[in-house]
C-alpha cells in the first residue's frame, strides 16, 4: 500500500507538470492537428478527382478518420522521454533511484501516464466529437467488440511505445553525445508507425514488412481497428501481437538496463 502511494504521487506529479503551463497544453494540442489539416485537404482534393473510389484500400471516410486519429494517437503514444532519461543517466540523477525504494522504471511509467492523462481526456472528447458527429464517420461501422479492442489496443500501444522508449534511452549508457540521436529515432519511429501517412502509401511490401515489427502496433494498427481496415477476424490476433511485443520489448528493456546499470556502477556512477 505504502509503495503504491509513491507511484500515485509520481503519477500526480506528471499530471501537475502537464498542468503547470496551461497555455502550453492547449496549444500543443492544436499543433498536433496542423499536419492533419493539411492532409485532410490533400486527401479531399485527391478523392474528389477520383470520384469517390477507394485509394490504397481506403474509402474517403476511412482516410480522413485515419488522418485525424493518427495525429492524436501519435501525440498520445510518443513518450518524448528519451532526453530526460539520458539526462538522468549523464548527470547522475539516477543515483537517487539506487538508494530510494522507488524503481526508476516505475517512476518513469507513472510520470508518463500522469503526463498523458490530460491528452487521454482530450483524446476521448475529440473522438466522440469528430468521429461520431462528423459525416466522415457515419459510414464507419463500430460493433461493440471493435470499440473494446480499440480501447485495449490504445493502452497496449502506449505500453509498447513506453517500453521501446525506455529500451532506446538505455543507449545513453554507452554513447557520449546523443543530443540529436533521439530526435532522429523518434522521427523514424513515428513515420514507420504510420503517424504521418498510412503505411500503404509506401507500398504494400513495406506495410507487410513492418507488420511483423512493434512499430506497426503503435499507431497504424489501433487507428485502423477504428477505421475498419483491419477485418474483424484479425482483431484478437493483433491484440495478441501487441501482447507478444510488449513482453519482448519488456525483456529487451530489462536486459539493456541491467547491462547499462552494470556499466554505470562500473564507472563509479
Amino acid at each position: 500500500m505504502k509503495n503504491a502511494n509513491k507511484y500515485a504521487v509520481t503519477f500526480r506529479f506528471g499530471l501537475q507538470h502537464a498542468l503547470e503551463y496551461r497555455s502550453n497544453f492547449f496549444l500543443s494540442l492544436i499543433s498536433a492537428f496542423v499536419p492533419a489539416v493539411v492532409q485532410y485537404y490533400i486527401w479531399s482534393t485527391v478523392y474528389k478527382s477520383y470520384n469517390d473510389t477507394t485509394l490504397f484500400g481506403y474509402s474517403y471516410e476511412q482516410m480522413i478518420a485515419y488522418t485525424i486519429l493518427a495525429a492524436v494517437v501519435s501525440k498520445l503514444v510518443m513518450t518524448n522521454m528519451e532526453h530526460a532519461v539520458s539526462n538522468d543517466i549523464k548527470t547522475g540523477g539516477l543515483n537517487r533511484y539506487l538508494i530510494q525504494p522507488i524503481s526508476y522504471f516505475g517512476f518513469r511509467l507513472c510520470h508518463y501516464f500522469g503526463q498523458k492523462l490530460l491528452y487521454i481526456i482530450g483524446f476521448i472528447v475529440i473522438i466522440t466529437l469528430i468521429l461520431f458527429v462528423s459525416p466522415a464517420s457515419r459510414q464507419l461501422e463500430h460493433e461493440p467488440e471493435r470499440i473494446v479492442i480499440f480501447i485495449l489496443s490504445i493502452v497496449m500501444a502506449m505500453i509498447i511505445s513506453f517500453l521501446l522508449s525506455f529500451a532506446v534511452s538505455a543507449i545513453a549508457f554507452w554513447l557520449a553525445d546523443i543530443s540529436y540521436f533521439f530526435v532522429v529515432t523518434s522521427l523514424v519511429i513515428n513515420v514507420v508507425s504510420g503517424g504521418m501517412f498510412p503505411l500503404e502509401l509506401f507500398g504494400e511490401g513495406f506495410r507487410s514488412a513492418i507488420s511483423v515489427l512493434p512499430f506497426y502496433y503503435m499507431i497504424y494498427w489501433p487507428v485502423n481497428v477504428w477505421t475498419g481496415i483491419i477485418p474483424s477476424s484479425e482483431l484478437w490476433l493483433g491484440l495478441l501481437w501487441q501482447l507478444g511485443w510488449s513482453v519482448v520489448l519488456g525483456g529487451v528493456a530489462y536486459m539493456s538496463w541491467k547491462l547499462g546499470f552494470k556499466r554505470y556502477l562500473g564507472l563509479g556512477g
Partner: peptide, 26 residues
C-alpha cells in the same frame, strides 16, 4: 510568458504545413 514552447511548437507546425499551393485550402 515563462514557457513559450507550445507557441513555438505551433509555429513549427505551421511552418512545416506551408509546403503546398494555398488554393488547396478553404
Amino acid at each position: 510568458l515563462l514557457d513559450t514552447s507550445a507557441a513555438a511548437e505551433i509555429s513549427y507546425a505551421l511552418w512545416d504545413a506551408n509546403n503546398m499551393p494555398a488554393s488547396l485550402y478553404h
